[in-house]
Nucleic acid binder design. Structure first.
Lengths: 231, 231
DNA sequence: ACCTGAACACCGTTCAAGT
DNA sequence: ACCTGAACACCGTTCAAGT
């Protein structure tokens, strides 16, 4: 999907279309939506709020987008093209590592994109090169076609989970008056029943603070690339 | 967090409390909420709908729960106690595998729980044994304390990502009139630029269909357990 | 102490009418 | 062809009043 396809549905340029001329453009709407998403997150985006932003009425938007879902997909679409591709090393295993980490790092900077992607589908063709790169390099590492595709998907699951978890933590942190159930549970852990957690409870935040996504991703990718072939 | 804590805030049993006797009980509210969540998912749960379900008004609920967020956490709380623990093998690596897969399998059957957890925090103390088990067994496999905790977290990221992705796919599938952007993009992939994806495009659904979470989880866990220690 | 009703400040979307 | 206004069917939550 790309924005051009959408506007290409209109009358040919140069023709004199009948009826009222458009005052609102899809690009304006999507741009304003993106701006709201970037500054206030998905919670801040409503059709009514967006209409105000572009100086129009909620219903005018529905001339240009099917519904809010489509609008959010359009807001995400095209973003990958704005991010420069990383330099890839020669070694195929390293290529998988770098590409997977790139996938993570780019989305890490755009939390609102994660919130939208996590309820939909990949729609940006400029992001496809990462799928190709990981599948191709995984095969160069000796994986069969299916295993390479599955490795790609597992890497995506890990990256998505990492980002969704971070998102959830950030959400909780924004409500500081609420109890920290997990920490409380750790503190109350019975050392006889849960010796490791009881011993760890004091240092839990520090230990988690030392979590290094790049290092974890490396271990996960290695596991996926080193497995024995299926059957 | 557990339901008893909450109800223990009330007057002592045996005392004759002044004022109007309660007609609504927290357990009733949480039970009804759970029922709605199980049958209709998080989208079906609203305070107004829930009030109707228990034969009361929306505002009566706020005597018993702080807000909708707390209600949803209470609905999730206690679920782990209803699931029997799996038999664990003796070998520590196998223990990690079995526990991690158990974590996945249990939540796989409760998609609505994933939707709630993915915007909050683990709150059920009866689920803590899985954290303990994975950390302890990972250490028995030779990992240091920090690495074991990080391995646990990475396993959780992978499981969460797997479930969130499935949730997103299911959501898309429920709207069959909407375009399948990803498949379209694959079909249009330029073989010169993306040879792997172009070659795969026809068989993509079948290949994904062969995705086996248990096998992927095994590879991911092995990668995390086999890595070199930090520093 | 507990519950109710009315109200506030919102939602996404449909429909009929205007330009 | 495009935009507007009013309306429908909802939200979560606060506040003041009732029992």
């Amino acid at each position: 999907m790309s924005s051009e396809q959408k506007s290409a549905d209109g009358p040919r340029a140069g023709a004199r279309p009948p009826g009222r001329p458009p005052r609102l453009e899809l690009a304006t709407i999507v741009g304003a939506a993106r701006h709201i998403l970037e500054t206030e997150g998905p919670a801040g985006l409503s059709m009514r709020r967006l209409a105000k932003e572009v100086g129009s009425t909620p219903m005018a938007l529905y001339r240009h987008v099917r519904d809010k879902d489509e609008l959010m997909l359009l807001a995400v679409d095209g973003l990958a093209a704005t991010v420069p591709r990383p330099e890839l090393p020669a070694d195929p295993r390293e290529r998988v590592h770098v590409t997977a980490l790139h996938m993570h790092d780019v989305l890490w900077e755009m939390p609102w994109v994660v919130d939208i992607i996590s309820l939909g589908e990949l729609t940006d063709r400029h992001a496809l090169w990462m799928v190709e790169e990981i599948v191709d390099s995984a095969m160069a590492c000796g994986l069969g076609e299916s295993d390479a595709v599955h490795a790609y998907r597992s890497i995506w699951h890990f990256v998505l989970g990492t980002l969704v978890f971070r998102s959830a933590m950030a959400r909780r942190a924004r409500q500081p008056d609420r109890p920290r159930y997990f920490m409380e549970m750790l503190r109350e852990a019975d050392p006889a029943e849960m010796p490791r957690l009881a011993a760890l409870s004091d240092r839990w935040p520090e230990v988690l603070d030392g979590y290094d996504v790049a290092r974890e991703l490396r271990a996960v990718v290695d596991g996926l690339l080193d497995r024995r072939p299926a059957r």
